[in-house]
Simulated scan of single mutants.
Amino acid sequence: MSIRFDSVTVAYDGNVVLDALDLTVAPGEVMALLGPSGSGKTTALRAVAGFVRPASGRVLLGERDVTDLPPHRRGIGMVVQQYALFPHLRVEDNVAFGLKARKTPKAEIRRRVAEALEMTGMAAYARRHPRELSGGQQQRVAIARALAIRPAVLLLDEPLSALDARLRSGMLAELARLHRELPEVSILYVTHDQMEALTLADRIAVMDKARLQACGTPQELYRAPANAFTASFVGNANLLPVTVTARGAVLGDAELTLDTAGAAAGARATLCVRPHLVGLGEGPNRLTGTVREIQWRGATHRLYVDVAGHTVRADLPELREAPAHGERITVHFAPEDAVLLAAGVSGDEH
Score class of each variant (00 low, 15 high):
Val16Ala: 08
Val16Gly: 08
Thr24Val: 15
Val25Glu: 01
Pro27Asn: 13
Gly28Cys: 04
Val30Pro: 00
Leu33Tyr: 07
Gly40Lys: 06
Thr42Met: 09
Gly57Pro: 05
Arg58Phe: 00
Leu61Lys: 05
Glu63Gln: 15
Thr67Gln: 06
Pro71Leu: 11
Ile76Met: 08
Gly77Tyr: 01
Val79Gly: 01
Val79Ala: 05
Tyr83Ile: 10
Ala84Leu: 11
Arg90His: 02
Asn94Arg: 07
Lys106Pro: 01
Lys106Arg: 15
Ala107His: 12
Glu108Phe: 00
Arg112Asp: 00
Glu115Val: 00
Arg131Asn: 12
Ala152Ser: 12
Leu160Gly: 03
Leu163Glu: 06
Ala165Leu: 15
Met171Phe: 02
Leu172Val: 09
Ala173Glu: 14
Ala173Asp: 13
Ser186His: 11
Tyr189Ser: 06
Val190Ala: 05
Asp193Cys: 10
Asp193Tyr: 11
Met207Val: 05
Ala210Lys: 03
Arg211Val: 08
Cys215Ala: 14
Glu220Tyr: 04
Pro225Asp: 04
Ala226Cys: 06
Thr230Ser: 06
Ala237Arg: 03
Asn238Glu: 04
Val242Phe: 06
Thr243Phe: 04
Ala246Cys: 01
Asp253Asn: 08
Glu255Val: 11
Leu256Asn: 05
Leu258Thr: 11
Thr260Cys: 09
Ala261Leu: 12
Leu271Trp: 10
Val273Met: 06
Leu280Glu: 04
Gly283Tyr: 10
Pro284Trp: 12
Asn285Ile: 07
Thr288Gln: 15
Val291Thr: 11
Glu293Gln: 12
Gly298Val: 09
Val307Glu: 05
Gly309Ile: 09
Val312Gly: 01
Ala314Asn: 10
Glu321Arg: 15
Ile329Leu: 11
Ile329Lys: 13
Phe333Leu: 13
Ala334Asn: 08
Ala338Phe: 09
Val339Lys: 14
Val339Gln: 15
Leu340Glu: 02
Leu341Glu: 03
Val345Thr: 11
